[in-house]
């Protein structure tokens, strides 16, 4: 299945755009699967040490299931003040 991922902050630069699609194989993928797939494609994402995954405007734990209908956002930390 194909997941559309919306990027915020530095993730926009890492992905090279605000919207990317990720192919996750089967229909029972979790947040952890998505992160593994994204970090393999974008090693710089892993270098941030942590970033938030939000699914339908809810903080997504690693074990949470993602479907094609979900709105997925990647929100990295921001330091400026």
């Amino acid at each position: 299945m194909e997941i559309t991922v919306l990027a915020f902050g530095i993730a926009k630069d890492i992905f090279g755009g605000q919207l990317i699609t990720v192919e996750l194989g089967d229909s029972t993928a979790t947040t952890a699967d998505l992160k593994v797939s994204l970090e393999a494609r974008y090693p710089k994402l892993k270098q941030l040490a942590s970033y938030m995954v939000a699914v339908n405007n809810e903080y997504a734990e690693d074990g949470g299931v993602i479907t094609e209908l979900d709105e997925v956002a990647i929100i990295p930390p921001v330091s400026g003040g």
């Binding site: 710089k44 942590s50 970033y51 930390p77």
Partner: peptide, 19 residues
């Protein structure tokens, strides 16, 4: 809870990226 830790060398700040 949101960001357990951050590698600050990989997140640009405002003097690099602007605001």
């Amino acid at each position: 809870d949101l960001f357990p830790q951050v590698d600050a060398t990989h997140v640009p700040n405002c003097s690099v990226g602007g605001v």
